[in-house]
């Protein structure tokens, strides 16, 4: 099998530690970036990820447009968008749960469509407009979908919530008067183990009309 195992090397692992002082996250990020820099020596081909010449398997320089901001990073071609967001860019809102395009916790919006970021390669997300949960609110104001989640008490443990909010945002962005059936269909790619569906549906339904 691969000489590099587990999949994403040292930067892929559970990452729920408190973010204070010298956290495990800060440490492993440093290792990841260091490794990337070593891999890039002699490569010097940042523009080639989009070309018709093969790139990788060593890290490749890519640019991602996330929440209106451009991010440059080096990733192996196998790195998924969720791992790039969480482990490289510290955008840990989207959650990696099933990692198999089923549960929806990793949902982000790409070019206006909700997508499973666990199942899109970061290298393939180049040139596309990526929206994550971090980009939809400010310090002072929540997005209407978030506000209605609060209003309808639409979460319990909260782990699926960022994905559901983004799936909900994709619904209300495209339709200001969705029926409850539209909402159900639009949320069908997201699973909540606590079973908060009733509140979530009402929240998205009301957010569209807010």
């Amino acid at each position: 099998m691969s000489s590099k195992n587990p999949t994403d090397g040292p930067v892929c692992g559970p990452d729920q530690e408190p973010r204070k002082g010298f956290s495990r996250r800060t440490f492993i990020e440093g290792v990841g970036i260091g490794a990337g820099a070593v891999g890039a020596i002699g490569a010097a081909e940042p523009a080639r990820a989009q070309s018709s010449e093969p790139v990788g398997p060593d890290p490749v320089a890519i640019t991602l447009n996330i929440n209106g901001k451009s991010h440059e990073l080096k990733v192996e071609p196998r790195v998924t968008l969720i791992d790039a967001l969480r482990n490289r860019l510290d955008l840990t809102g989207a959650k990696k749960v099933c990692d198999r395009a089923t549960c929806g916790a990793c949902t982000v919006i790409v070019d206006g469509d909700p997508v499973y970021s666990c199942t899109m390669l970061a290298i393939e997300a180049q040139g596309r407009r990526i929206e994550t949960i971090e980009g939809i609110s400010t310090e002072d104001s929540m997005h209407p979908v978030q506000a209605q989640f609060v209003e309808h008490d639409a979460q319990q443990c909260g782990f699926c919530t960022p994905g559901l909010v983004m799936a909900g945002k994709a619904i209300v962005d495209g339709n200001s008067q969705p029926s409850m059936a539209d909402v159900e269909s639009g949320l069908s790619g997201n699973i909540c183990r606590c079973g908060t569906y009733v509140g979530v549906r009402k929240a998205v339904y009301d957010a569209a009309r807010a």
Binding site: E53, E76, P77, R78
Partner: peptide, 19 residues
């Protein structure tokens, strides 16, 4: 997943030739 090299050709024939 196992690491791989990545290529995104501009034509179907070029894609087939890369396989």
């Amino acid at each position: 997943m196992q690491n791989f090299e990545y290529i995104a050709p501009n034509s179907a024939i070029a894609a087939a030739q890369a396989l």
